[in-house]
Design a protein around this nucleic acid. Structure first.
Lengths: 194, 194, 194, 194
DNA sequence: CATGAATGAGTTTTCATTCAT
DNA sequence: AATGAATGAAAACTCATTCAT
């Protein structure tokens, strides 16, 4: 399995660094190879083409992330607490790796429609996770039974995403994690409102 | 003033159509010129370069939009109602012009960082508008005095933006305007929560 | 009509020179452009791609050639004389332009199957011409009525082509035209034999 | 002697199959290795480089062929009969192995000038064979003493080669061997004509 | 003002060959 | 002898922009 070979991860990590530092449109394959310490051609032993590197990057990182959250949420009872963990982990995950945050929030969004559609496929798992929290909340009466799950999910994801993007655009100048409680409070109110 | 010349608007409208139909990366200057019914070189009489066309497109359309909302909000008293008008107008504006919606929500986001920073400048007026609604709400005790204005603004903008983007990604298959009340309710709860 | 613009012919003539001097596999587009005195991109205003340059080269040169022979043959009565003119013109045409001879006999044959199939389409006119001479000869009893036209055509074309190729491979060291009568005699015997 | 090791022949036979099925430009060393059931690197234990594989292929196959014809011609008296055997064997040899026919008539001709010059070296033995038949014929008065041996040889080789090539280009759709007598008759007339 | 022919910089990918094991 | 992972050079084509008319 290629994904376990060390060079596979080496190249993906190199791509994150190169894209973060040079921008999506200046992340040439040769730069990524150099950063990974391999020859240009070696990349094509592990990836079909450049696009495949970027999709794999997103899958690999986002996959880890969603898996991690699933585990964390397993032992938690209330929807309110689950939501708190979600926001906390989301912010922490990206606050821990500024390069990765820049890549996912700004650079990778410059990719073309095809690539973005594939990225959205990866995101679906995450959105399903949000839906399950909302479902739990409605069942436990923590959230209003009148909320539209799709719209509530869009509020939660949209708010979290916008918050992270703004933080990245401001060059990570302030602490992202400090906002967890306030964002949680805003969203909780949104969902539980009379 | 170049902005009043007929060809200026012709070119911007041509750009919206060409980008919507071909995608950002297939919107060559020559295609825009052809769609506008002018020669390639003519575009450079009205715009500094291609990027300037795109920024102007955003300024022109977004400018109209913010101005329109300002007027609408003037006569309204409560923050809750203001917020409702904001959502309503935002959704209506984009629901009326599917081409423009595709361009602002999907295509223009593929532009590079520089262009996106300039687009953000244009958005600032809009965000300030949201802030003023929030300010009003706090003063009239409609909104909790504990809310963080920046975060609340991010929630409002993030939710609206994510809702429109999802609608565009689903090929405008359902009515966007029908969601106005529910989104309003979600956001209002978020801001007014204890 | 692009074929009448001077640059169209300029580029084709440049291609002949570059291919003859550097070989098919070392005839980069940039070299052809330089030789033609235009920018690389200009070639793509006149030709769809590199292959199109090579096909057009062959069509243009071979087209001229076949047309010329048609005219010459018009006023001639006997098949024997027609055959003589054919060989004479074929040899003269290539003896006059050593570059072109090298390109058609050696270099262009290194092209891939697709290109060679297209080249064969162009050659069909020439082969039809040979067939019509054979037909005439059979009707006038100059040639044996037993000959198989396809095979006779293959003999005529094969012999002429092999003769020119050998001459080119020997770096045009001897006179090609001096062989006209002898080749004519060989082929005439072949066709008229009892 | 490397030529007697089993892998040497394995690799050459693999090359014939791979080139016939994929075309000259899609016959990568790795494909040939796979078809031969050896590692890429192993090829370089038996051949200097890729070109060496192709030359050896031609030498090996053509060598067998010329040798076979020499033997066959030994016991034959008249030049006419010798010529018949030559054509018959040439056609039979290639008709028996369609892959080989495709490779020698179409694919190997796409090689560059250098390789083709080396192939011509191999062909020299064959051309010498033709010359000796012509010499015999002149001495026995079967052929005209006026014929130019070089040109007659070019006629014989050119006609045979063109006939085979046309047959290959037509996907071996008709019987090649059925043309032996007619081609023989054409060439015999050519050489013996007054 | 308007034209559009011409420019030329810039990047992904393939594949013959090597060499440590 | 045999392997196969790694290497890295090399070229066609696009398209934003200019400028002579």
């Amino acid at each position: 399995m290629r994904r376990n070979k060390p060079k596979y991860k080496q190249i993906i990590d190199a791509a994150v660094v190169v894209i973060a530092e040079n921008g999506y449109h200046n992340a040439q394959v040769s730069k990524i190879a150099k950063q990974a310490g391999v020859a240009d051609g070696t990349i094509y032993l592990y990836f079909k083409n450049k696009e495949d590197v970027l999709i794999s990057l997103f899958q690999e990182k986002m996959g880890q992330f969603v898996e991690k959250i699933y585990e964390e949420l397993a032992g938690i009872e209330t929807a309110a607490e689950k939501l708190h963990v979600l926001i906390d982990k989301h912010f922490s995950f990206l606050a821990e790796d500024h390069h990765l945050a820049t890549v996912t929030q700004l650079e990778l969004r410059q990719s073309n429609k095809d690539l973005r559609l594939k990225i959205n496929d990866v995101l679906k798992d995450y959105l399903t996770l949000i839906d399950s929290i909302l479902q739990t909340g409605i069942e436990t009466d923590e959230f209003s039974e009148n909320i539209d799950i799709r719209l509530a999910r869009q509020m939660i994801f949209g708010t979290i995403d916008e918050t992270v993007t703004t933080w990245v655009m401001n060059d990570h100048r302030y602490g992202l994690i400090e906002s967890v409680d306030k964002v949680h409070s805003l969203l909780l109110n949104g969902c539980s409102g009379s």
